[in-house]
Write a protein that binds this DNA or RNA. Structure first.
Lengths: 117, 117
DNA sequence: CTTGACCTTCACGCCGGCGTGAACCCCTAC
DNA sequence: GTAGGGGTTCACGCCGGCGTGAAGGTCAAG
């Protein structure tokens, strides 16, 4: 299928799919005219990519571990190797830090509004 | 005082102070040679700016409401006018949304790691 | 006079996942 | 032929608070 159809089937945009190719996440075939052609399996592959992106995993990391992605009855999951586990721990730590920073900002914001009396 | 001394006194950097001028938060005098000279009161002013920035308020908003900033025994606080209150509510709402998005990402990340059995 | 610590004005880099034109080619249908 | 709905490759914009050189002027001290 062409890029437009894949975009429609996956609920993404053609721009996103091209971006996934730029970052090495998805490497479609090409017609003689240069058109990208995707395999039916790429629909599931894009769904996996979206699941990982939505989980806060960056494209650079996804590129290295997309092969570890599997699909179960609860949705996408990851087959953990030590490297991947370490990476996910780092991501989780980063997210915890962001959470802490955000709630600290929230507290400070509230502090600015409290009536000084 | 010159920009370096103000930076030292406020614990910021000269780059940050110049940036505050670029965005209209702080408008120092100039010597004949073009050097920025700051009044002693600017030390407190920078502290207020830092307090607002650390609370998640952007420079554009600070520029409009820096005049509402006061200093109490609990630190900086804001004298609320209706416009400012609306603005702060919007910022708080944005932060709540970010919090929700972040914890959703965290849940998805955890979901990817759970053993599928 | 010279060193050296100060200051000045540009102006790009960062972080990341795309959005958004611009300018152009491919193919089908009328 | 031509209209139109695909596709293609650049390449900058965004969001924001600065970091980080680069190239050069200012001024007190030795």
């Amino acid at each position: 299928m062409l890029i437009g159809e894949l975009a429609r089937r996956t609920g993404t945009t053609t721009r996103a799919l091209r971006h996934y190719e730029d970052t090495g996440l998805l490497v479609p075939e090409r017609t003689t005219a240069g058109y990208r052609t995707y395999a039916p399996a790429d629909v599931a592959r894009v769904a996996q990519i979206r699941a990982l992106l939505d989980a806060g995993i960056g494209t650079a990391t996804i590129r290295r571990f997309l092969g570890c992605a599997r699909d179960g009855h609860h949705g996408t999951y990851l087959e953990l190797c030590p490297d991947l586990r370490a990476e996910l721990d780092a991501i989780a730590a980063r997210m915890d830090a962001e959470q802490a920073a955000l709630s600290a900002r929230g507290a400070r914001l509230a502090g600015l509004v409290t009536c000084p009396r």
